[in-house]
Design a protein around this nucleic acid. Sequence first.
DNA 1: TGTACCATGTAATTGGTTACATGATTAC
DNA 2: GTAATCATGTAACCAATTACATGGTACA
Lengths: 186, 186
Amino acid sequence: MRTLGYAVLSLLSREDLSGYDLKRWMERPLGYFWSARHSQIYPELARLEEEGFVTHHVVEQRERPDKKVYGITASGREAVREWVTEPPSSQATRDELVLKAYSIWLADPDAAAALFEEQERLHEEQLRHYEEIEVWMQDNWGESPERMDFDRFASYAALRRGIGYERDYAEWCRWVAAKLEERRSV
Amino acid sequence: MRTLGYAVLSLLSREDLSGYDLKRWMERPLGYFWSARHSQIYPELARLEEEGFVTHHVVEQRERPDKKVYGITASGREAVREWVTEPPSSQATRDELVLKAYSIWLADPDAAAALFEEQERLHEEQLRHYEEIEVWMQDNWGESPERMDFDRFASYAALRRGIGYERDYAEWCRWVAAKLEERRSV
DNA sequence: TGTACCATGTAATTGGTTACATGATTAC
DNA sequence: GTAATCATGTAACCAATTACATGGTACA
């Protein structure tokens, strides 16, 4: 099974959704760690239905196009449950900015410092966005993760990874920019 | 141009290499942030040569197969130089373990904790490996990054990202595992 | 005798992005 | 009017992995 299939099943374990709804989840917030375009989602839903992991029924709407609402089957639920505690298939890391850092000696140091300052700003921005979500979760779901509902804890755990990632990434950008500045005077 | 092309040009800016040499660099250490298999590298070299960014000459070897050694051209050097300070093309984040974290409420908490403990171990291991390289660099290239040769600083900067990433990832795994344990008693 | 390494390629398949395609409603 | 959102699909293309293919040398 494709990881995208599990991403879809994971969302459908929480609630029934249309292809369009899934598309929006795959932009945000799920897209923060697993993204997909609608052109990938619609065929994936068809395949999952063929495999018996989801079913759909058409919901007719006034003043809006009709939609297909998908629900997970018992077999689908069993499939995600098995997948979720298995070790992830090791994925090759590909980070273009780190590749640029590795090649930065080819560049003009001022232009290089500017690049890392700008990237720092972008990661700080994303960090602040995640932190706002964290505050919202704490206000609405309670301060302590140990006592949150289990599905909410899961959402919070994923968010925590985003916070750590962006914080550390921004710090690295800041460090690279600072060292590039220092090198000019040494 | 493909990012893989720039990865190859970046390596060839440092020294002349054969396709096989490039393959090994793309396993480690470059593979820590940009990996490729030999089946991608050989066609890429052909394309880069067609585009005039690299040239090759055949080196005949006794007791070993002959090899094609590639060198970067002036036009290739100009191409990397331009690429290196441009902002990276935004890449969709895809982290299967975070997706599993988001879905962890579906699982048995003990099996879930075991998954995150094991992943913590793996990231700690990778961290220790990076830290050994860091010690080697400091011993051989000097303690202060500001005074390293510029190409060595670039290598060190990329390594620093690896260290930060693994340290933070391991910490997150530890946090998830701990919270899962705590939830059992609450 | 078998495994690992050197050395270079192609073919098939999968996963993902971009582009093509259509059409209604709502808000500015 | 026109842009945004709702709603669902297909086609073309690109990037990357896996598998297919060959053959010599070194070493245990």
